[in-house]
């Protein structure tokens, strides 16, 4: 289980995350929502030890993140950050194979190749395998990075705005894939996402942040309410029912 205990992060004396205590459900898709600068990415980055906390701590399976052996943690938790683009000249296949790094070190075994194939297949980018990532479109590159996180085959998968750069059909494909991973392979998925309707359709649990604090937290059903969302985003958001699902309407 992933949890945090009065987790704070400040730059100078400005808090971007303030005493956040949360414990997140397992085997579910948990969506982090909130305005820009609400602290969503910061929280994900601290949980995945990309940045240190100022105060408090994050726990993965009951153990402080800072006390985990980095490689062991990488076998259990994968993070795909924002702007994970790089200029390295690496083929898609090799990039996805890097997902096996925590398990195999540098030398890949038979099982690693299978996992790479599987990840390529699940994300539907088998035809891109030989292409170099610096030649791909933003969306294709994003798919390759998601495939890499899937190849890492971890219990926890953290994704910071994975739908950036993706068209609708790819976005839906990714969300369905994540749902499948959560349901069928008992993965716990933490995802920062801006499109609130994707949250409504695919997330099981929602953590809503505002000004560095967790303002609301609960099942999708409980948090997807007009007054809650309006408060979080500071604008009027209506909720309509469509075939039993909630659709947020905020285009005015």
């Amino acid at each position: 289980m992933i949890s945090t205990e009065s987790l704070s992060k400040k730059y100078g004396d400005k808090f971007v995350l303030r005493e956040v205590s949360a414990s997140l459900p397992e085997n579910k898709i948990t969506a982090f929502i909130g305005c820009n600068g609400a602290g969503k990415s910061t929280m994900l980055n601290i949980i995945s030890r990309l940045i240190p906390a100022s105060e408090g701590c994050a726990f993965v399976d009951g153990k402080k993140v800072s006390e985990w052996d980095s490689r062991k943690l990488a076998q259990n938790l994968a993070i795909l950050g924002q702007n994970s683009h790089n200029s390295a000249r690496i083929s898609v296949e090799d990039l996805v194979a890097f997902g096996r790094f925590p398990h195999s070190g540098g030398s890949l075994a038979e099982r690693d190749f299978e996992m790479v194939e599987r990840a390529l297949k699940m994300t539907g980018i088998e035809d891109l395998r030989g292409r170099f990532i610096d030649e791909l479109s933003g969306g294709q590159r994003q798919m390759a990075h998601i495939a890499m996180s899937i190849a890492q085959d971890t219990k926890y998968i953290l994704l910071d705005e994975p739908l950036n750069n993706l068209d609708m059909s790819r976005s839906v494909k990714i969300m369905k894939l994540l749902r499948k991973l959560a349901r069928e392979e008992s993965k716990t998925i933490l995802i920062v996402i801006h499109d609130i309707n994707f949250v409504s359709f695919y997330a099981d649990y929602i953590v809503a942040l505002k000004d560095g604090r967790v303002k609301y937290e609960g099942s999708s059903e409980a948090v997807m309410k007009s007054e809650i969302l309006s408060d979080i985003y500071g604008m009027r958001i209506e909720i309509e029912e469509y075939k039993g699902k909630k659709i947020c309407v905020y285009y005015q």
């Binding site: 943690l73 990488a74 993070i79």
Partner: peptide, 13 residues
């Protein structure tokens, strides 16, 4: 792994 940049390298352990 460091070729991929700091964050990804850390993510890979």
């Amino acid at each position: 792994a460091l070729t991929l940049g700091r964050n990804m390298a850390i993510s890979l352990g």
